[in-house]
Design a protein around this nucleic acid. Structure first.
Lengths: 128, 128
DNA sequence: GTTCATATACGAATATTTTCGTAATACAAT
DNA sequence: ATTGTATTACGAAAATATTCGTATATGAAC
């Protein structure tokens, strides 16, 4: 079980999203994906990626004169950690309360709700 | 619909939890509830509450020589905001993905899962 | 190899959050 | 009123996160 205990900052998390979605990409791509120069200066993103590299949040690989960055922590793990933390800091340890808030507000489609039900049944089956 | 648009910091959120759980309390109570002097200096908590007061995150009322603090934003609203944000920064806009992560990891009890199912059925009923 | 455009490296400034020491204040007891 | 203890006020330091200007380096084109 890979529990790498990372704690990305908010901006770092934004970047990780992009890396997860797009695989190894150059700074330029991240910069553009985040809304270009209107949103963040190029060197700001570059710097963030460099810091993330120092922290071990990303690996990078040279390709010609540029670097291609890749996320180290998995999306799965990271999501899990964030949720776990939120469950106990904001939802008093109850996953259910979180689920209910999540479903209550964002009006999910019927299909989604169904899929969740299926998922629940699967969980009930294979319970420890 | 009360959408007060607050953005408590992490520490502030921790304090809000306590205020929500315990109603109007003194600094001392918050301090103790957060683990006493081992965890945070008294004046640190005091200062945080003062800042929260300036920001309008809490109201306070004198009672003898001390202040009793009370949360302004509701727990409901705050949870909602946090979840919404997380859904779109971490779960690509899909509440379902969040729900699945939440249920998958934290092993919820059978009772909880059942209750969620009931809740889902209620949602399916009254859909827009 | 010189020039040009593009990328990275680096350091420092700015902003935000958290922590804490010290001073001032308030009430209670004497 | 004076003293003692608990509380608040305040300012500044420390820690963390974000932004950006400028210097350096790299490779491509000539």
């Amino acid at each position: 079980m890979n529990r790498s205990q990372v704690k990305p900052t908010e901006k770092e998390l934004e970047i990780l999203q992009i890396l997860w979605a797009r695989g190894p990409v150059a700074v330029k791509d991240v910069h553009e994906a985040m809304g270009g120069e209107d949103m963040n200066g190029y060197t700001t993103i570059l710097k963030l990626l460099q810091i993330m590299h120092e922290k071990g949040l990303v690996t990078r690989q040279k390709s010609g004169k540029l670097h291609l960055y890749k996320a180290v922590p998995s999306q799965e793990n990271t999501r899990q950690q964030i949720i776990d933390k939120m469950i106990d800091t904001v939802f008093q340890g109850s996953a259910m309360q979180l689920v209910m808030s999540a479903l209550g507000n964002k009006k999910s489609s019927k299909e989604e709700l169904l899929e969740i039900k299926k998922y629940l049944e699967k969980l009930e089956g294979g319970e420890q």
